[in-house]
């Protein structure tokens, strides 16, 4: 696979380490009353879709940026890739 790195262009997926579902960026607030349940949900449960999936890849053998890659899990087609920090800070969607 080739990952379209937003800064570096297409890079071989072998340069990356895969983490998983991009919802992992949304760590629950530990002060909320149901924090333990919220964390269990966050840590363990996944939609695991057959289709479009937003997921986290780390460019370990590259520039060490975390990317949010939008990829189809049935066809492996990649629809887009963004810097995770941009996504989190709301710079992009």
């Amino acid at each position: 696979m080739l990952i379209p790195h937003p800064l570096l262009g297409p890079r071989d997926a072998q340069e990356f380490i895969y983490l998983g579902d991009a919802t992992l960026m949304h760590r629950p607030d530990a002060t909320r009353p149901d924090a333990e349940a919220a964390f269990c949900d966050y840590v363990f449960l996944r939609h695991n879709p057959a289709g479009v999936h937003r997921e986290l890849w780390f460019h370990e053998a590259g520039d060490r940026s975390w990317l949010v890659v939008t990829r189809n899990t049935v066809t492996h087609e990649i629809i887009g890739a963004e810097l995770a920090c941009d996504v989190k800070l709301g710079v992009t969607q």
Partner: peptide, 13 residues
């Protein structure tokens, strides 16, 4: 990797 994850993905602020 984990520290970069928290820095970039969770607390980029």
């Amino acid at each position: 990797r984990q520290l970069e994850f928290f820095r970039q993905c969770v607390w980029p602020d």
